[in-house]
Every structure is written in structure tokens, then in C-alpha cells.
């Protein structure tokens, strides 16, 4: 076995770092959109709003029940075939759509569970002072549910960062795509992918730190 080519690895770091922002962008935009969508789904489910509730159940079932890669191919290769106007969808947009819908389906369920877990007395107190349903959700229930849901949601965010690597199958040159290109030029596969792996790893570690910090902040109101 050849020795690891350390010089190559070190040289690769700045090259690959240029593609890290795109990876983070895909994950961040995906996460923000997925969160918004998941909150809407969760509220629809909790309030059991007719029609929307049924549609949401089917949506969640489909996007949890099928592989993300299949969904990405459906958006990128499949949709334009049905609707020619959709040929304008590029790989980046298709990736964000896929990540958003896939992860919103998962997150909706954990947000819903967190909402249902907020003590009934909190809702009653909010109603008793004359709050509307929207106000009590926004000001009382969701903030308390956030604390419960945070660890799970951060897990999904971490998962989403890694899932952005699938974008390379749609021709998007993010961290994974760039690594693939570099490796097939140099044939130093192990070196190239270990550098990429460490980069993902560091990003995820930083996020875990952020999660820890957020948990302390959100728990402030609940410690004696």
C-alpha cells in the first residue's frame, strides 16, 4: 500500500474550501424553508384543519416513505418531462426543493409531538386572557415546543448538511461534487474523500456546539 500523499491533501484543502459555502447554502436555505413548511404542517395537524390535514398526511407519508435520491431525480429529471416550463429548474433549485420537502416531512412530526406535549394549562391560560389561537401558538405554545423539539431539529439539520452531497448527482459542484472531480483527476481517491469527510465532520461538530449553546439558553426559563 502506498503511503498517504499528505502534500496532496494539504493542497486540496483550499481548493475544496471554495465549494463549502455552496454546501452550507444548500443546507441553510433548505433548513429555513423546511422549518417554515414543517411548522405549517404541524399546526394543520394539531388543529386538524379539514382537507389540509388529509393533504398534509399524504404529503408527509410520501416524503418520508421514499428515498431522498429518488425525490431529487423526480424533481430534476422527472418534472421537466411533465411540464416543459419546469426545464428552467437547475440542479441547485431541485436540490433545495428536495431537501425542503423531504426534511419538512420528518420535522413536521417532531414539531407536532412537541406542540402536543406543551401542557394544556398553558393553552387555557392564554385563552383565558383573550388571546386568539394564532397568538397563543406564536407566543406561548411554539416557544415552549421549540425547546423540546430543538435537539431533534438540530439532528435533522446535521443530516441535511450531509444530504446536500447528493446534489452532485444532479451535476451541482458542491463539496462532494468538487471532491469527486479532483479525485478522478488525481486518482488519489482516499486522500480526496478523507479531506472532504473531515470538512463535513468539522462543520457538524461546530453545529453541535451551537446546539449545546442554544439548549442552555432555551432551558434558562426552566431551571430553578
Amino acid at each position: 500500500m502506498d503511503v498517504l500523499n499528505v502534500d496532496y491533501m494539504l493542497g486540496l484543502v483550499p481548493v475544496l474550501l471554495r465549494y463549502l459555502p455552496l454546501t452550507l447554502q444548500l443546507a441553510t436555505i433548505g433548513m429555513v424553508l423546511a422549518l417554515i413548511l414543517a411548522c405549517l404542517f404541524a399546526v394543520v395537524r394539531v388543529l386538524a384543519i379539514p382537507v389540509l390535514n388529509q393533504l398534509t398526511i399524504v404529503f408527509i407519508s410520501f416524503f418520508r416513505g421514499t428515498p431522498l435520491l429518488v425525490q431529487l431525480f423526480l424533481f430534476y429529471y422527472g418534472l421537466p418531462q411533465l411540464v416543459s416550463a419546469l426545464t428552467v429548474i437547475d440542479g441547485i433549485t431541485a436540490t433545495i426543493m428536495g431537501l425542503t420537502m423531504h426534511f419538512s416531512a420528518y420535522m413536521a412530526e417532531s414539531i407536532r409531538a412537541a406542540i402536543v406535549g406543551v401542557d394544556r394549562s398553558q393553552t387555557e391560560a392564554a385563552l383565558s386572557i383573550g388571546m386568539t389561537n394564532g397568538q397563543l401558538m406564536r407566543r406561548i405554545v411554539l416557544p415552549q415546543a421549540t425547546r423540546v423539539a430543538l435537539p431533534t431539529l438540530m439532528n435533522y439539520f446535521i443530516d441535511m448538511i450531509k444530504a446536500t452531497s447528493l446534489a452532485f448527482t444532479l451535476g451541482v459542484t458542491e463539496l462532494m461534487g468538487a471532491t469527486q472531480k479532483e479525485a478522478s483527476g488525481s486518482f488519489l481517491y482516499f486522500e480526496a474523500f478523507i479531506v472532504a469527510a473531515i470538512m463535513y465532520w468539522i462543520v457538524v461538530e461546530l453545529l453541535s456546539k451551537l446546539q449545546h449553546y442554544l439548549e442552555i439558553r432555551l432551558n434558562k426559563a426552566y431551571s430553578r
Partner: peptide, 17 residues
């Protein structure tokens, strides 16, 4: 509800406030 105010047996203070 705006005309009336309620005091609960279990206090029911908003836990996040």
C-alpha cells in the same frame, strides 16, 4: 374573556415568560 379574568388552581403561569 376580555371582560373576565381567571385564576387557576395550578397557577398556569406562562412557563416561557
Amino acid at each position: 374573556r376580555r371582560q373576565t379574568a381567571f385564576v387557576f388552581q395550578n397557577y398556569a403561569l406562562f412557563a416561557n415568560k
